[in-house]
C-alpha cells in the first residue's frame, strides 16, 4: 500500500486517498461500477466496446481514439481496467436520429481494429457474438478461423448450436475436412514412403 503510494507520487499523481474502512473501499469501487449508468445520463444510447491492448500502448491508443471520435463526429468516454489493458470505450449516440447507430458501429469497429493494430485483441471479456463477428478476419488469418470452426465440427456437426455467431462465414464441416492436396517439390526426401 505504502509502496503503491510512493510509485504514484513518483509518477506525478495529484491526489491519493486510501480507504480506511470496508464501507469506504466499496464506495471507491462504486464510482467505477457506476461509470456505465453515469454515461446513461450524458447520452440517450451508448455502445460499450471491449478491446484489449498491451498496456504500454495506452497513451497512443487514447490519442488515436480521440482522432477517431473527431472523424466520426461522435463522443466517446473511456472506462477501463488499466491493470490488464482491457478497454471499455463507450460510444455515445442517439438511436432516435437516423444513421447514428450505423455511425456508432463504424466508430466501434475502427476502435477495435486499432486495438488489433497495436497487438491487442477484439474482446477481453464480452465475447464476439454478432457484434464483433465480422471483425474476426481482421484479427485472425483464414487458417486460424478454419481450425476454430473444425473444433466446432467435433462437437456440432449439423451446426444447430448458435449458428451465425462468432464466425463471419458459415462453413460446412465436410468442406473444412477436405485436405488441400499438396503436389509440390519434396524438400524432405528422406521421409520413408510406401
Amino acid at each position: 500500500m505504502i509502496e503503491v503510494e510512493a510509485i504514484a507520487k513518483r509518477n506525478g499523481c495529484v491526489s491519493v486517498r486510501v480507504s480506511t474502512t470496508e464501507a469506504e473501499r466499496l464506495a471507491f469501487w462504486a464510482g467505477r461500477k457506476a461509470a456505465f449508468p453515469a454515461i446513461g445520463r450524458l447520452s440517450p444510447d451508448y455502445l460499450c466496446m471491449d478491446g484489449t491492448i498491451p498496456r504500454g500502448r495506452l497513451p497512443e491508443v487514447l490519442t488515436k481514439m480521440a482522432e477517431l471520435s473527431e472523424k466520426h463526429g461522435m463522443r466517446v468516454a473511456n472506462v477501463f481496467h488499466a491493470g490488464d489493458g482491457n478497454l471499455h470505450p463507450l460510444i455515445m449516440y442517439d438511436a432516435g436520429i437516423p444513421g447514428q447507430l450505423e455511425t456508432a458501429e463504424e466508430f466501434g469497429a475502427d476502435i477495435l481494429k486499432l486495438c488489433v493494430d497495436v497487438g491487442g485483441v477484439l474482446t477481453g471479456e464480452h465475447g464476439v457474438g454478432i457484434e464483433k463477428r465480422d471483425l474476426m478476419e481482421y484479427q485472425f488469418e483464414q487458417a486460424d478461423l478454419e481450425q476454430q470452426q473444425r473444433l466446432k465440427c467435433a462437437f456440432d456437426e449439423e451446426g444447430v448450436l448458435n449458428p451465425g455467431k462468432v464466425f463471419p462465414k458459415l462453413c460446412r464441416c465436410a468442406e473444412l475436412g477436405r485436405v488441400h492436396v499438396h503436389r509440390g517439390q519434396t524438400r524432405f526426401p528422406d521421409l520413408p514412403r510406401f
Binding site: D84, G85, N86, G120, V128, M136, Q139, A143, Q148, L151
Partner: peptide, 20 residues
C-alpha cells in the same frame, strides 16, 4: 493438414474465438 495456424494472443485478457 500441413497448415500453419495460430490462436489466442499476446495480451493477458482475451476471449476472442475459441480458447485453443
Amino acid at each position: 493438414y500441413g497448415e500453419a495456424f495460430g490462436a489466442g494472443g499476446r495480451v493477458v485478457k482475451n476471449v476472442t474465438g475459441f480458447d485453443l
